[in-house]
Write a protein that binds this DNA or RNA. Structure first.
Lengths: 350, 350
DNA sequence: TTGAAAGCGCTACCAA
DNA sequence: TTGGTAGCGCTTTCAA
């Protein structure tokens, strides 16, 4: 920058103003400076800029294990941030560790301007988020952050997620519309995020409204991958007295549905003829299953985009604007796993 | 830091040394300073540190579109970087745009200490990477970087990938071992990365060595998702005179195999009885297919971990150590799509 | 509209 | 083993 200033015959401060498009600089001067800067291959040092101005043009993201879901969300966020010269710093914080707090502290030391956070699951015993005190402190520190996909009950902040409650209602109604009455809901009670809670609630609300008996089916034993849980839940169901009357299953996630599907295959049951099966998430793999899986597709990219947008507003805009909650609609994607269709949809149709 | 110094009755420079675990500071002094720092909630400012020391403790990653593959690679890299107080700055650069260079320049402005790069595909016409001059310049600038999954021919740098050539050989031999002689290889010539090239070469080398005729089958028309390409390639094959004699297909990626599988289902062909089908990548979804897909599983996490390790060595170690190429073995995962098994493997078995 | 100078928080150098 | 001080490259304030 000093070199640029010397070559342009101006002061460094003038160069700075020119580069930042400050209206006080004369058009002609700015252009001359910019040309010289380019010639010299000048590249602004964001570290110095950040140190002086108190902004790093960087946002931290703390999410759970790497999955296709989070990949999409982060890609969405990144695309919006990139448009504003912002960068995303990535961290994975496996649930149920203290990691989450450590990661955020590390990100704060790097002076991120804001954070995109998927808070860990709610403690099933206590019914509250184990990190709530930490988040409350973070909030009081005035560090801008947005919760994605899930939130911390008791803390009012910016928040972006799919409308899981409505989506679960829509899914349940879809099964009812196809003629099912004995509809079980597969889920895992071990780690319940707020979104999982809302899905369960949505399912139960529709069942009750229609005078049907909710059959919440807990994957009690397993607690590793969702898939294993779905597999065991279905095995249990098929051997259970009550379970045997069930004609349709709504799974709390696509991976759980995949496990359930495997169990059905293994037991020689036909899908959808013997049992209708529906997933939740819109995982890409669902399309490839046999039969292809009907599911609620979540707007993952949009969740990331909106989260980044909200965060940028909060960083650059008025700190005191009221906190916003954005719930994005999920989309019912009908494939063959629930019947009601003559054939499996071809790619692109669903 | 000034506050900490004052409270501890020492100079800021002493605090700095203490925090950086400099051996010159007496154990006792260090501990006292550290305690006070903690009490005061002191958090080191990495921006200032970076400005002064010329290191940002940050590395940039530029990969293609978000996919499960890249998600795993990045998660692997992130886990290693986190152990060294490094952070990952994420960028997605869709192939075949100039984006790649722009992104890297932006990352450089943020003063990343190094870069993890998946270079774009080789231009099929010219046979060279369109960005080679840029990468050469980057190399001359002495900025540490590692190529992952693919490289730029003609540029000798640190490089980590799966051993695609050997993996393709192993895959081909597997099919031969099962009794197949007419084995086609599905691939898409439009965008050939170096790893795709090596897969094709590996397949052909085994076929030739065994006196078999290679049947490279180009997905000529489509050029969107790999899946669509696989679907169309299989349709073509089934209608082709030569193609009808084929008994096994090795696809250049799992998604291509999935498309091919759909086409086989649609045509009423049984897998593996009418046609054996094998994928490449180890995509999670392959396990859920009907029949489950035999594939070469790439060590995605390890690729990311090794890439980060190499980069850290380069950043912190001797700049002039010779460039290393790390090729990690892929694993043959036998499921039911190629036959030779009595039943589909249960989860965990394969 | 531009210039001059201070200073962000740290590390690195040299002196004690 | 510790203290003092310069200065990284920028933005920002104030003066011209």
């Amino acid at each position: 920058m000093k070199d640029v200033a010397r070559r342009a015959g101006v002061d460094v401060s003038t160069v700075s103003l020119a580069i930042n498009n400050d209206p006080r600089i004369r058009q002609e001067t700015r252009e001359r400076i910019l040309v010289i800067a380019r010639e010299l291959g000048y590249q602004r040092n964001h570290l110095a800029r950040g140190l002086r101005s108190g902004k790093s043009f960087t946002v931290g993201a703390v999410v759970g294990y790497q999955t296709a879901f989070w990949g999409e969300v982060l890609a969405g966020a990144q695309s919006v941030l990139a448009q504003h010269e912002y960068h995303l710093m990535l961290d994975y914080a496996p649930d149920a560790t203290r990691q989450e707090e450590v990661q955020i502290e590390a990100l704060k030391a790097k002076r991120v301007d804001g954070l995109i956070i998927a808070p860990s699951d709610v403690d099933p015993q206590a019914g509250i988020n184990p990190h709530i005190d930490y988040y409350r402190a973070l909030f009081n520190e005035q560090i801008p952050f947005v919760f994605v996909d899930r939130f911390v009950p008791g803390l009012d902040t910016d928040y972006v997620a799919a409308d899981n409650f409505s989506a679960a209602r829509q899914a349940t109604r879809h099964l009812v519309r196809l003629g099912h009455r004995k509809i079980a809901y597969f889920y895992s009670p071990h780690r319940m995020s707020t979104s999982q809670r809302e899905r369960l609630d949505g399912y139960q609300s529709v069942m009750r409204e229609l005078g049907l008996t909710p059959i919440p089916w807990e994957a009690a034993r397993a607690r590793e991958h969702r898939r294993q849980e779905g597999l065991e839940a279905m095995r249990d169901l098929l051997q259970d007295k009550l379970g045997r009357s069930v004609t349709a299953v709504l799974a709390s996630s696509d991976s759980m549905a995949m496990g359930a599907l495997r169990a059905l295959h293994d037991a020689g049951r036909e899908v959808p003829d013997d049992m209708a099966l529906m997933g939740f998430d819109g995982a890409e793999a669902g399309e490839y299953l046999e039969p292809p899986l009907t599911t609620m597709t979540l707007p993952m990219r949009a969740i990331g985009e909106q989260a980044a947008g909200l965060l940028l507003d909060r960083i650059n805009g008025d700190k005191s604007t009221p906190y916003r909650h954005i719930l994005l609609p999920a989309e019912l994607v009908v494939r063959a796993s629930c019947g009601g269709l003559k054939h499996a949809p071809r790619p692109g149709e669903g």
